[in-house]
């Protein structure tokens, strides 16, 4: 029997090199140019919006682009606190819409936006898997210690609303997880990991048949108001500032409000 002598670098190293170069190639592909087919260069309007506004702003942005040929609306959707942090660090946003007034007020305090306007409100709802297998009927039912309950962490806006509602009702919840965002809470329920969660009415509407919503009276204790504002940023062209105002107006217009109402938002 002869022993195998080492004679080459491991295949693992080669495989990694291939994988790494593939990753570089993929990243390179994702940055595209933005020129219209008729040769006119687009004016890009960058809108930072809370993740819960995804569906509403997708639709409003599409309508806006249809009404304004040559304008490209880029939506950056994330948690409100992340958006605010990015704008504070100089991210090039023209319009910002957050999921609560507290986060927007930090931008007002920093003189980065002026005169935010409320354009929608949202309240909490209990979300359960289809058919409501654990028979949740009200907020009190969520205190059952055997329940896999998932809520937002108190540090994020939906968690602050949760705390307000639960405190108002004089209850104590024992969640198995305090998630980073309302989307994560919804995801845990749609995945079947959680028996119940606390999310916004609009999240339940958005999830369609995959979940059921259970409304509860105490939700009135935390009505979340969504403000929208133009961002004062350096490097903004007069065109963009003008368009920013028009986008804000579009969201506040009857058409914009109808889009929001369809998705479960209430008027401010």
């Amino acid at each position: 029997m002869t022993a195998a002598l080492p004679r080459r670098t491991t295949r693992a190293t080669a495989a990694l090199a291939v994988a790494a170069s593939a990753a570089v190639a993929l990243t390179a592909c994702s940055t595209g140019s933005a020129a219209t087919s008729d040769g006119e260069v687009d004016t890009t309007l960058t809108v930072f919006a809370a993740a819960s506004l995804t569906a509403a702003f997708d639709e409003t942005a599409a309508d806006f682009e249809a009404d304004h040929p040559g304008v490209d609306v880029r939506l950056s959707l994330a948690g409100s606190s992340s958006l605010v942090a990015q704008i504070q660090q100089g991210a090039p946003a023209d319009v910002v819409a957050t999921a609560d007034t507290a986060t927007m007020n930090t931008l007002v305090a920093d003189d980065l936006v002026d005169a935010p306007e409320p354009f929608a409100t949202n309240t909490l709802e209990i979300v359960v898997p289809p058919g409501n297998p654990t028979g949740i009927a009200n907020l009190q039912d969520l205190t059952d210690p055997g329940l896999n309950l998932v809520v937002c962490a108190p540090e994020v806006p939906c968690g602050a609303a949760t705390t307000a509602v639960v405190d108002h009702a004089g209850l104590t919840l024992q969640p198995v997880s305090e998630e980073q965002s309302v989307t994560d809470v919804l995801g845990k329920v749609t995945a079947g990991e959680a028996d119940a969660g606390l999310v916004y009415v609009t999240d339940v509407a958005r999830a369609g048949d995959r979940v059921e919503g259970v409304a509860f009276d105490e939700s009135a204790a935390a009505v979340n108001t969504y403000p929208i504002a133009m961002v004062d940023r350096s490097g903004q062209t007069p065109d963009q500032a003008d368009l920013a105002q028009q986008f804000v107006d579009a969201v506040l217009s009857p058409d914009g409000q109808a889009v929001l109402a369809d998705l479960g938002f209430a008027a401010p």
């Binding site: 606190s81 962490a153 997880s177 845990k188």
Partner: peptide
């Protein structure tokens, strides 16, 4: 971890998750 395990102090909220959460209120 955040996808699979969730986030609860002392049970599943490890240091990277805590960093991410604290970013929200206390940079």
């Amino acid at each position: 971890t955040i996808t699979f395990a969730g986030s609860l102090q002392g049970v599943t909220r490890t240091l990277p998750l805590e960093v991410y959460l604290q970013r929200e209120t206390d940079p």
